[in-house]
């Protein structure tokens, strides 16, 4: 017998603090696997954001910086500009990236900043116990939309991939999901591709991973996976929104 699946080297031995069934853990592993498969662990500097993944610096076995809420793309820019040969990634939630950090992500994308962004969209603020996020679906109940998100009062959820795809800076934008094994494997490929884009100096690459927050959604982990597939994917269609290498190939 041989080992066909084990914890990647780019992950530390620390057990993760996430709630049972939280897909942050899956996405961490996919990022670590991408780093391992490209052999870039010693060249990589990660930027943890503020949100449930704030402790990511304990879980990735690479150099890490912890950024202020929303500012990970700016911090990553600072690192990448002074260490252009290193691989720099951010790991951000939807509140972090699409609300308080909207300015930083849009401008990092517009500059074509040569970094990799892992964007975890769980349609809610996890860490602060379940408030409405910029990605909360219309009708979805949260701590601050207790009667369900009303479009009349709070507008509509933001589709980040589509929004950033209007810019010339990004090299690769993809939306993937973490709700079942098939999609997780696809997500892993997209994440690896987003690191390859940086390696080839193609510029800004982002993978949006649809993910769950079973505790704040008030469902079991298994039920959350179904809810994601049934409710999030129709509003947030999966796919590649930009890939300059595909365009180059044409």
């Amino acid at each position: 017998m041989r080992v066909v699946f084990e914890k990647p080297e780019a992950m530390t031995d620390s057990p993760m603090h996430y709630c049972p069934g939280c897909t942050h853990g899956v996405i961490h592993r996919l990022v670590a696997e991408a780093i391992d498969s490209l052999g870039i662990r010693e060249q990589t500097i990660g930027v943890a954001s503020v949100g449930c993944s704030v402790f990511a610096y304990d879980y990735f076995n690479v150099d890490m910086q912890q950024a202020a809420h929303g500012r990970a793309p700016a911090v990553a820019t600072g690192i990448k500009r002074v260490l252009p040969d290193k691989m720099v990634f951010t790991y951000q939630g939807d509140g972090d990236l699409a609300s308080i950090g909207m300015g930083e992500i849009v401008h990092a994308a517009a500059r074509g900043e040569n970094i990799t962004v892992i964007f975890v969209n769980n349609a809610i603020y996890g860490m602060t116990s379940g408030q409405m996020a910029p990605t909360t679906l219309v009708g979805q109940k949260t701590a601050t939309s207790p009667r369900g998100r009303s479009a009349a009062e709070t507008g509509y959820p933001i589709r980040m991939c589509e929004l950033l795809a209007t810019l010339d800076g990004p090299s690769y934008l993809a939306r993937v999901s973490s709700h079942d094994t098939k999609h997780i494997i696809q997500a892993g490929r997209a994440i690896k591709k987003a690191f390859e884009m940086q390696q080839q100096n193609k510029g800004f690459a982002m993978v949006e991973v649809l993910s769950t927050c079973s505790v704040n959604w008030g469902m079991t982990p298994a039920k959350s996976m179904e809810w994601l597939a049934e409710n999030m994917i129709p509003y947030y269609p999966l796919g590649v929104y930009k890939d300059i290498t595909a365009e180059e190939g044409k």
Binding site: V3, M16, I184
Partner: peptide, 13 residues
Amino acid sequence: ATICPDVALTIMR
């Protein structure tokens, strides 16, 4: 192991 969020499973084949 692919879906395990805690990387708690190692698989041999």
